[in-house]
Design a protein around this nucleic acid. Structure first.
Length: 404
RNA sequence: GGGCAGGUACCGAAGUGGUUAAACGGGGCAGACUGUAAAUCUGCUGAGCUACGCUCUACGGAGGUUCGAACCCUUCCCUGCCCA
Protein backbone atom coordinates (compact mmCIF):
# COMPACT_ATOMS: atom_id res chain seq x y z
CA UNK A 1 0.00 0.00 0.00
CA UNK A 2 2.92 2.40 0.57
CA UNK A 3 5.56 3.08 -2.07
CA UNK A 4 8.92 1.46 -1.45
CA UNK A 5 11.52 2.89 0.87
CA UNK A 6 13.62 4.30 -1.93
CA UNK A 7 10.70 5.88 -3.69
CA UNK A 8 9.62 7.46 -0.44
CA UNK A 9 13.06 8.74 0.42
CA UNK A 10 13.26 10.50 -2.93
CA UNK A 11 10.09 12.36 -2.13
CA UNK A 12 11.21 13.18 1.39
CA UNK A 13 14.57 14.44 0.21
CA UNK A 14 13.46 16.44 -2.79
CA UNK A 15 14.12 20.11 -2.19
CA UNK A 16 14.76 19.59 1.51
CA UNK A 17 17.59 21.35 3.30
CA UNK A 18 17.82 19.25 6.44
CA UNK A 19 16.50 15.76 6.93
CA UNK A 20 17.64 14.62 10.36
CA UNK A 21 18.51 12.04 11.43
CA UNK A 22 18.25 10.23 8.15
CA UNK A 23 18.88 6.76 9.54
CA UNK A 24 16.03 7.15 12.01
CA UNK A 25 13.75 8.20 9.21
CA UNK A 26 14.71 5.13 7.22
CA UNK A 27 13.76 2.95 10.17
CA UNK A 28 10.46 4.74 10.59
CA UNK A 29 9.61 4.33 6.93
CA UNK A 30 10.59 0.67 6.95
CA UNK A 31 8.40 0.10 9.95
CA UNK A 32 5.55 1.94 8.33
CA UNK A 33 5.84 -0.05 5.11
CA UNK A 34 6.00 -3.31 7.03
CA UNK A 35 3.09 -2.66 9.37
CA UNK A 36 1.03 -0.65 6.90
CA UNK A 37 0.70 2.07 9.49
CA UNK A 38 0.92 5.66 8.25
CA UNK A 39 3.43 8.05 9.70
CA UNK A 40 2.34 11.19 11.49
CA UNK A 41 3.64 14.30 9.79
CA UNK A 42 3.48 17.45 11.85
CA UNK A 43 3.39 21.00 10.63
CA UNK A 44 2.88 23.82 13.06
CA UNK A 45 1.53 27.09 11.88
CA UNK A 46 1.31 30.49 13.42
CA UNK A 47 -2.14 31.98 13.10
CA UNK A 48 -1.08 35.41 14.30
CA UNK A 49 -0.84 36.48 10.71
CA UNK A 50 -3.11 34.27 8.70
CA UNK A 51 -2.47 35.61 5.24
CA UNK A 52 -0.55 32.91 3.50
CA UNK A 53 1.99 33.74 0.88
CA UNK A 54 3.82 31.55 -1.54
CA UNK A 55 6.74 31.30 0.86
CA UNK A 56 4.48 29.22 3.12
CA UNK A 57 3.58 27.13 0.14
CA UNK A 58 7.07 25.64 0.01
CA UNK A 59 6.52 23.68 3.19
CA UNK A 60 2.84 23.07 2.56
CA UNK A 61 3.65 21.54 -0.80
CA UNK A 62 6.08 19.16 0.86
CA UNK A 63 3.37 18.24 3.34
CA UNK A 64 1.08 17.54 0.44
CA UNK A 65 3.66 15.31 -1.21
CA UNK A 66 3.88 13.27 1.98
CA UNK A 67 0.11 13.06 2.17
CA UNK A 68 0.17 11.69 -1.33
CA UNK A 69 2.56 8.99 -0.15
CA UNK A 70 -0.18 7.90 2.20
CA UNK A 71 0.96 9.50 5.42
CA UNK A 72 -1.16 11.45 7.81
CA UNK A 73 -0.73 15.19 7.95
CA UNK A 74 -1.41 16.88 11.25
CA UNK A 75 -1.68 20.61 11.00
CA UNK A 76 -1.22 22.26 14.34
CA UNK A 77 -2.79 25.65 14.58
CA UNK A 78 -0.78 27.38 17.23
CA UNK A 79 -3.61 29.32 18.76
CA UNK A 80 -2.10 29.05 22.20
CA UNK A 81 1.49 29.72 21.17
CA UNK A 82 0.37 32.68 19.12
CA UNK A 83 -0.51 34.30 22.39
CA UNK A 84 3.16 34.09 23.27
CA UNK A 85 4.16 35.45 19.90
CA UNK A 86 6.86 33.48 18.15
CA UNK A 87 10.06 35.46 18.40
CA UNK A 88 11.47 33.85 15.24
CA UNK A 89 13.44 36.26 13.14
CA UNK A 90 11.99 39.20 14.95
CA UNK A 91 14.11 41.62 16.80
CA UNK A 92 11.03 42.74 18.64
CA UNK A 93 8.46 40.84 20.58
CA UNK A 94 5.29 40.32 18.67
CA UNK A 95 1.99 41.60 19.93
CA UNK A 96 0.12 39.02 21.90
CA UNK A 97 -3.25 37.98 20.64
CA UNK A 98 -6.28 36.72 22.47
CA UNK A 99 -7.31 33.12 22.08
CA UNK A 100 -10.37 34.30 20.24
CA UNK A 101 -8.37 36.23 17.67
CA UNK A 102 -6.18 33.26 16.99
CA UNK A 103 -9.18 30.98 16.54
CA UNK A 104 -10.61 33.18 13.86
CA UNK A 105 -7.23 33.51 12.20
CA UNK A 106 -6.74 29.78 12.43
CA UNK A 107 -9.81 29.17 10.36
CA UNK A 108 -8.65 31.64 7.74
CA UNK A 109 -5.31 29.93 7.66
CA UNK A 110 -6.92 26.57 7.23
CA UNK A 111 -9.10 27.75 4.39
CA UNK A 112 -6.03 28.85 2.50
CA UNK A 113 -3.81 25.94 3.43
CA UNK A 114 -6.28 23.48 2.01
CA UNK A 115 -5.67 24.99 -1.38
CA UNK A 116 -2.49 22.99 -1.26
CA UNK A 117 -3.18 20.21 1.20
CA UNK A 118 -5.72 17.54 0.46
CA UNK A 119 -8.53 17.08 2.94
CA UNK A 120 -7.88 13.34 2.92
CA UNK A 121 -5.39 12.24 5.52
CA UNK A 122 -5.49 15.66 7.15
CA UNK A 123 -6.08 16.32 10.80
CA UNK A 124 -6.25 19.77 12.29
CA UNK A 125 -5.50 20.37 15.93
CA UNK A 126 -5.38 23.53 18.00
CA UNK A 127 -2.58 23.47 20.51
CA UNK A 128 -4.59 25.24 23.17
CA UNK A 129 -6.22 21.81 23.50
CA UNK A 130 -3.29 20.56 25.56
CA UNK A 131 -1.25 23.66 26.35
CA UNK A 132 -4.02 25.51 28.10
CA UNK A 133 -4.46 22.57 30.45
CA UNK A 134 -0.92 22.68 31.74
CA UNK A 135 -0.62 24.14 35.21
CA UNK A 136 2.41 25.78 36.74
CA UNK A 137 3.77 22.44 37.94
CA UNK A 138 3.66 21.10 34.42
CA UNK A 139 5.39 24.16 33.07
CA UNK A 140 8.16 23.92 35.61
CA UNK A 141 8.65 20.25 34.88
CA UNK A 142 8.78 21.03 31.17
CA UNK A 143 11.20 23.90 31.63
CA UNK A 144 13.47 21.71 33.73
CA UNK A 145 14.24 19.69 30.61
CA UNK A 146 16.13 22.52 29.02
CA UNK A 147 18.88 24.87 30.02
CA UNK A 148 19.19 28.55 29.34
CA UNK A 149 22.45 27.92 27.50
CA UNK A 150 20.68 25.48 25.21
CA UNK A 151 17.93 27.94 24.46
CA UNK A 152 20.41 30.70 23.86
CA UNK A 153 21.99 28.57 21.16
CA UNK A 154 19.10 29.49 19.02
CA UNK A 155 20.39 31.98 16.53
CA UNK A 156 17.70 34.54 17.09
CA UNK A 157 18.00 34.55 20.88
CA UNK A 158 21.72 34.56 20.59
CA UNK A 159 21.79 37.65 18.42
CA UNK A 160 19.37 39.47 20.61
CA UNK A 161 21.21 38.53 23.74
CA UNK A 162 24.54 39.67 22.36
CA UNK A 163 23.19 42.92 21.02
CA UNK A 164 21.39 43.70 24.21
CA UNK A 165 17.91 43.48 22.69
CA UNK A 166 15.32 42.44 25.25
CA UNK A 167 14.25 38.82 25.48
CA UNK A 168 11.29 38.09 27.70
CA UNK A 169 11.15 34.87 29.63
CA UNK A 170 7.92 33.82 27.98
CA UNK A 171 9.66 33.94 24.62
CA UNK A 172 12.18 31.44 25.88
CA UNK A 173 9.28 29.16 26.60
CA UNK A 174 8.07 29.24 23.03
CA UNK A 175 10.25 26.43 21.65
CA UNK A 176 9.26 24.28 24.61
CA UNK A 177 5.58 24.90 24.07
CA UNK A 178 5.94 24.00 20.45
CA UNK A 179 7.79 20.86 21.44
CA UNK A 180 4.84 19.84 23.58
CA UNK A 181 2.78 19.74 20.41
CA UNK A 182 5.03 16.99 19.16
CA UNK A 183 4.52 15.10 22.40
CA UNK A 184 0.76 15.51 22.22
CA UNK A 185 0.36 14.16 18.72
CA UNK A 186 3.35 11.79 18.83
CA UNK A 187 4.64 13.00 15.52
CA UNK A 188 7.06 10.90 13.50
CA UNK A 189 8.39 13.76 11.49
CA UNK A 190 8.00 17.49 11.69
CA UNK A 191 8.21 19.91 8.79
CA UNK A 192 9.24 23.51 8.82
CA UNK A 193 11.33 26.23 7.24
CA UNK A 194 15.05 26.26 7.92
CA UNK A 195 14.41 29.01 10.43
CA UNK A 196 12.46 26.48 12.47
CA UNK A 197 15.29 23.98 12.71
CA UNK A 198 16.04 24.79 16.32
CA UNK A 199 12.43 24.54 17.41
CA UNK A 200 11.97 21.26 15.57
CA UNK A 201 15.03 19.78 17.25
CA UNK A 202 13.80 20.81 20.68
CA UNK A 203 10.76 18.70 19.90
CA UNK A 204 12.96 15.61 19.82
CA UNK A 205 14.39 16.22 23.27
CA UNK A 206 11.06 16.95 24.83
CA UNK A 207 9.46 13.93 23.22
CA UNK A 208 12.23 11.74 24.57
CA UNK A 209 11.76 13.24 28.03
CA UNK A 210 8.11 12.29 27.80
CA UNK A 211 8.76 8.76 26.60
CA UNK A 212 7.64 9.42 23.06
CA UNK A 213 9.76 8.19 20.16
CA UNK A 214 11.63 11.27 18.88
CA UNK A 215 10.50 12.77 15.63
CA UNK A 216 12.67 13.31 12.59
CA UNK A 217 12.89 16.79 11.21
CA UNK A 218 12.67 18.05 7.68
CA UNK A 219 13.35 21.64 6.79
CA UNK A 220 12.64 23.43 3.56
CA UNK A 221 14.37 26.56 2.27
CA UNK A 222 12.98 29.94 3.07
CA UNK A 223 11.87 31.58 -0.12
CA UNK A 224 13.21 35.05 -0.76
CA UNK A 225 10.67 37.79 -1.20
CA UNK A 226 10.12 39.72 -4.39
CA UNK A 227 12.93 42.08 -3.42
CA UNK A 228 15.30 39.15 -3.72
CA UNK A 229 17.05 40.02 -0.49
CA UNK A 230 14.99 39.33 2.59
CA UNK A 231 12.87 36.31 3.25
CA UNK A 232 9.34 36.62 2.05
CA UNK A 233 7.17 38.13 4.72
CA UNK A 234 4.15 40.24 5.05
CA UNK A 235 5.77 42.81 7.27
CA UNK A 236 8.44 43.48 4.67
CA UNK A 237 5.79 43.76 2.01
CA UNK A 238 7.76 41.61 -0.40
CA UNK A 239 5.28 38.78 -0.53
CA UNK A 240 2.95 37.16 -3.01
CA UNK A 241 -0.24 36.15 -1.25
CA UNK A 242 -2.37 33.13 -2.09
CA UNK A 243 -5.21 35.55 -2.45
CA UNK A 244 -3.47 38.02 -4.75
CA UNK A 245 -5.45 38.50 -7.92
CA UNK A 246 -3.83 37.04 -11.05
CA UNK A 247 -2.62 40.37 -12.31
CA UNK A 248 -0.90 41.23 -9.02
CA UNK A 249 0.53 37.78 -8.69
CA UNK A 250 1.92 37.83 -12.21
CA UNK A 251 3.40 41.28 -11.85
CA UNK A 252 5.01 40.48 -8.55
CA UNK A 253 6.73 37.44 -9.99
CA UNK A 254 7.95 39.52 -12.90
CA UNK A 255 9.54 41.93 -10.46
CA UNK A 256 11.82 39.41 -8.80
CA UNK A 257 15.50 39.65 -9.68
CA UNK A 258 16.49 37.42 -12.57
CA UNK A 259 18.72 35.21 -10.42
CA UNK A 260 15.69 34.05 -8.49
CA UNK A 261 13.75 32.82 -11.51
CA UNK A 262 14.78 29.18 -11.24
CA UNK A 263 14.40 29.16 -7.49
CA UNK A 264 10.84 30.38 -7.75
CA UNK A 265 10.20 27.83 -10.46
CA UNK A 266 11.35 25.04 -8.17
CA UNK A 267 9.78 26.11 -4.93
CA UNK A 268 6.78 28.23 -5.80
CA UNK A 269 5.33 26.57 -8.88
CA UNK A 270 4.59 22.90 -9.27
CA UNK A 271 7.29 22.35 -11.86
CA UNK A 272 8.86 18.93 -12.22
CA UNK A 273 12.56 18.30 -11.76
CA UNK A 274 12.83 17.80 -15.52
CA UNK A 275 11.25 21.17 -16.31
CA UNK A 276 13.45 22.91 -13.80
CA UNK A 277 16.53 21.34 -15.33
CA UNK A 278 15.55 22.45 -18.82
CA UNK A 279 15.01 26.03 -17.73
CA UNK A 280 18.17 26.16 -15.67
CA UNK A 281 20.29 24.94 -18.56
CA UNK A 282 18.52 27.15 -21.04
CA UNK A 283 19.30 30.20 -18.95
CA UNK A 284 22.88 29.17 -18.39
CA UNK A 285 23.71 28.67 -22.05
CA UNK A 286 21.58 31.67 -22.99
CA UNK A 287 19.21 29.88 -25.30
CA UNK A 288 16.33 31.07 -23.13
CA UNK A 289 15.71 34.78 -22.65
CA UNK A 290 15.59 35.63 -18.93
CA UNK A 291 12.39 37.51 -19.40
CA UNK A 292 10.69 34.61 -21.14
CA UNK A 293 11.77 32.23 -18.44
CA UNK A 294 10.31 34.52 -15.84
CA UNK A 295 7.09 34.81 -17.78
CA UNK A 296 6.86 31.05 -17.78
CA UNK A 297 7.39 30.92 -14.03
CA UNK A 298 4.86 33.67 -13.44
CA UNK A 299 2.26 31.90 -15.54
CA UNK A 300 2.81 28.61 -13.76
CA UNK A 301 2.45 30.21 -10.36
CA UNK A 302 -0.72 32.02 -11.35
CA UNK A 303 -2.08 28.76 -12.75
CA UNK A 304 -1.34 27.03 -9.48
CA UNK A 305 -3.51 29.39 -7.48
CA UNK A 306 -6.09 30.51 -9.99
CA UNK A 307 -6.53 27.49 -12.20
CA UNK A 308 -5.10 26.48 -15.55
CA UNK A 309 -5.29 29.27 -18.10
CA UNK A 310 -5.30 32.09 -15.56
CA UNK A 311 -1.60 32.56 -16.12
CA UNK A 312 -2.03 33.10 -19.83
CA UNK A 313 -4.70 35.74 -19.23
CA UNK A 314 -2.58 37.48 -16.65
CA UNK A 315 0.35 37.47 -19.04
CA UNK A 316 -1.66 39.08 -21.82
CA UNK A 317 -2.90 41.73 -19.48
CA UNK A 318 0.58 42.37 -18.20
CA UNK A 319 1.83 42.86 -21.74
CA UNK A 320 -0.90 45.31 -22.45
CA UNK A 321 -0.30 47.25 -19.28
CA UNK A 322 3.46 47.51 -19.19
CA UNK A 323 4.84 46.80 -22.58
CA UNK A 324 2.15 48.70 -24.45
CA UNK A 325 1.37 50.98 -21.49
CA UNK A 326 -2.31 50.30 -21.88
CA UNK A 327 -4.84 49.89 -19.10
CA UNK A 328 -6.18 46.64 -17.68
CA UNK A 329 -9.75 45.71 -18.49
CA UNK A 330 -11.14 44.68 -15.13
CA UNK A 331 -10.97 48.05 -13.42
CA UNK A 332 -13.21 48.60 -10.48
CA UNK A 333 -16.11 50.92 -11.22
CA UNK A 334 -17.46 53.30 -8.68
CA UNK A 335 -20.44 55.58 -8.51
CA UNK A 336 -20.17 58.61 -6.31
CA UNK A 337 -22.68 61.04 -4.89
CA UNK A 338 -22.92 64.76 -5.46
CA UNK A 339 -22.51 67.24 -8.27
CA UNK A 340 -21.25 66.34 -11.69
CA UNK A 341 -18.35 68.72 -11.30
CA UNK A 342 -16.10 67.64 -8.44
CA UNK A 343 -12.66 68.34 -7.22
CA UNK A 344 -10.35 65.56 -8.32
CA UNK A 345 -8.37 65.70 -5.11
CA UNK A 346 -11.46 65.02 -3.02
CA UNK A 347 -12.41 62.10 -5.19
CA UNK A 348 -9.09 60.30 -5.03
CA UNK A 349 -8.82 60.95 -1.30
CA UNK A 350 -12.30 59.71 -0.47
CA UNK A 351 -11.83 56.58 -2.58
CA UNK A 352 -8.63 55.72 -0.74
CA UNK A 353 -6.53 55.90 -3.88
CA UNK A 354 -4.18 58.08 -1.87
CA UNK A 355 -3.41 58.10 1.83
CA UNK A 356 -4.68 61.56 2.63
CA UNK A 357 -5.56 64.79 0.95
CA UNK A 358 -2.09 66.07 1.62
CA UNK A 359 -0.70 62.94 0.04
CA UNK A 360 -3.06 63.32 -2.89
CA UNK A 361 -2.07 66.88 -3.57
CA UNK A 362 1.56 65.80 -3.62
CA UNK A 363 0.73 63.02 -6.06
CA UNK A 364 -1.03 65.39 -8.40
CA UNK A 365 1.79 67.90 -8.27
CA UNK A 366 4.26 65.15 -9.08
CA UNK A 367 2.33 64.24 -12.20
CA UNK A 368 1.26 60.86 -10.92
CA UNK A 369 -2.44 61.35 -11.57
CA UNK A 370 -4.28 61.26 -14.85
CA UNK A 371 -7.92 61.35 -15.91
CA UNK A 372 -8.85 59.59 -19.14
CA UNK A 373 -5.16 59.57 -20.03
CA UNK A 374 -4.71 63.32 -19.51
CA UNK A 375 -2.20 64.17 -16.83
CA UNK A 376 -3.53 66.54 -14.17
CA UNK A 377 -1.01 68.65 -12.29
CA UNK A 378 -3.20 71.27 -10.61
CA UNK A 379 -4.41 69.87 -7.33
CA UNK A 380 -7.32 72.25 -7.28
CA UNK A 381 -8.61 71.04 -10.62
CA UNK A 382 -12.17 69.85 -10.91
CA UNK A 383 -13.45 67.15 -13.22
CA UNK A 384 -16.83 66.60 -14.77
CA UNK A 385 -17.94 63.18 -13.60
CA UNK A 386 -21.30 63.05 -15.39
CA UNK A 387 -19.58 60.67 -17.79
CA UNK A 388 -17.52 57.80 -16.44
CA UNK A 389 -13.91 58.88 -16.01
CA UNK A 390 -10.86 56.67 -15.78
CA UNK A 391 -8.60 57.85 -12.99
CA UNK A 392 -5.05 56.61 -12.74
CA UNK A 393 -2.84 57.19 -9.73
CA UNK A 394 0.75 56.08 -9.99
CA UNK A 395 1.52 53.08 -12.11
CA UNK A 396 -0.94 50.57 -10.87
CA UNK A 397 -3.97 52.18 -9.32
CA UNK A 398 -6.96 52.54 -11.59
CA UNK A 399 -10.55 53.43 -10.86
CA UNK A 400 -13.53 54.24 -13.04
CA UNK A 401 -15.69 56.89 -11.45
CA UNK A 402 -18.93 58.61 -12.32
CA UNK A 403 -21.63 60.51 -10.53
CA UNK A 404 -24.81 58.52 -10.17
C1' G B 1 18.57 46.87 46.20
C1' G B 2 22.78 50.23 44.18
C1' G B 3 25.31 52.53 39.95
C1' C B 4 25.59 53.82 34.72
C1' A B 5 23.50 54.52 29.81
C1' G B 6 19.18 55.11 27.08
C1' G B 7 13.59 55.87 25.22
C1' U B 8 13.11 61.15 18.83
C1' A B 9 8.79 60.27 12.91
C1' C B 10 7.67 53.43 9.39
C1' C B 11 12.94 51.77 11.07
C1' G B 12 18.03 53.27 12.40
C1' A B 13 20.02 57.71 14.11
C1' A B 14 21.34 63.44 14.83
C1' G B 15 19.69 67.45 17.62
C1' U B 16 20.43 69.38 24.33
C1' G B 17 16.05 76.49 25.18
C1' G B 18 13.90 80.11 19.76
C1' U B 19 15.51 80.29 12.22
C1' U B 20 12.71 72.30 14.27
C1' A B 21 7.31 69.17 11.09
C1' A B 22 12.67 68.01 13.44
C1' A B 23 19.65 66.87 9.92
C1' C B 24 21.35 62.15 7.81
C1' G B 25 20.71 56.92 6.26
C1' G B 26 17.28 52.97 5.18
C1' G B 27 12.33 52.02 3.79
C1' G B 28 7.95 53.74 1.19
C1' C B 29 5.67 56.59 -2.82
C1' A B 30 6.10 59.26 -7.50
C1' G B 31 8.63 60.85 -12.20
C1' A B 32 12.32 59.39 -15.98
C1' C B 33 14.44 55.08 -17.92
C1' U B 34 13.88 49.60 -18.63
C1' G B 35 12.03 43.06 -21.03
C1' U B 36 10.37 43.97 -15.65
C1' A B 37 6.89 46.43 -10.35
C1' A B 38 14.90 44.94 -11.16
C1' A B 39 19.12 48.47 -11.46
C1' U B 40 20.08 53.66 -11.91
C1' C B 41 18.96 58.93 -11.66
C1' U B 42 15.54 62.88 -9.75
C1' G B 43 11.75 64.48 -6.50
C1' C B 44 8.33 63.69 -2.44
C1' U B 45 7.58 61.45 2.35
C1' G B 46 2.46 64.29 9.79
C1' A B 47 -2.55 66.20 8.99
C1' G B 48 -6.40 69.92 7.65
C1' C B 49 -7.67 74.11 4.93
C1' U B 50 -10.71 76.42 -2.64
C1' A B 51 -4.19 76.78 0.04
C1' C B 52 2.84 78.31 -2.66
C1' G B 53 0.62 80.64 2.97
C1' C B 54 -2.16 79.70 7.61
C1' U B 55 -3.77 76.35 11.50
C1' C B 56 -3.51 71.86 14.31
C1' U B 57 -0.91 67.47 16.10
C1' A B 58 4.14 65.32 17.18
C1' C B 59 10.16 63.93 20.08
C1' G B 60 8.07 57.36 26.35
C1' G B 61 3.55 59.29 30.03
C1' A B 62 1.95 63.21 33.43
C1' G B 63 3.01 67.79 35.58
C1' G B 64 6.25 72.27 36.10
C1' U B 65 9.95 76.45 34.89
C1' U B 66 9.98 80.04 30.67
C1' C B 67 7.63 85.23 26.41
C1' G B 68 9.19 80.40 24.14
C1' A B 69 10.88 73.29 25.54
C1' A B 70 12.39 67.36 21.86
C1' C B 71 16.03 70.15 24.61
C1' C B 72 15.87 72.61 31.74
C1' C B 73 13.25 70.63 36.51
C1' U B 74 9.90 66.95 39.17
C1' U B 75 7.61 62.40 38.95
C1' C B 76 6.00 57.90 36.76
C1' C B 77 6.58 53.96 33.02
C1' C B 78 9.86 51.08 29.83
C1' U B 79 14.86 48.94 28.05
C1' G B 80 20.10 47.56 28.22
C1' C B 81 24.76 47.07 30.94
C1' C B 82 27.60 46.59 35.54
C1' C B 83 27.61 45.55 40.89
C1' A B 84 24.84 42.97 44.78
Amino acid sequence: MFPTLNEQMDIFRSGAVDLLPEDELVKKIEKSVKTGKQMIVKLGCDPSRPDLHIGHAVVLSKMRALQDLGHKAVLIIGDFTAMIGDPTGKSKTRPQLTLEDTRVNGQTYLDQATQILTADRLEVRYNSEWLSKMDFNDVIRLAANYTVAQLLERDDFNKRFKSGTPISVHELLYPLAQAMDSVAIESDIELGGTDQKFNLLVGRDIQRANNVEPQCILTMPILEGTDGKEKMSKSLDNYIAFTDVPREMFGKVMSIPDELTVRYFRYASSATEEEIKVMDEGLKNETVHPRNAKVQVAMRIVDKYHGAGAGQTAFEEFERMFVKKDVPDDIEELTIEGDAEQQLLNVIASTKMVGSKKDGSRMIQQGAVSVDGEKVTDFKATVDFSEQRLIKVGKRKFLKVKVG
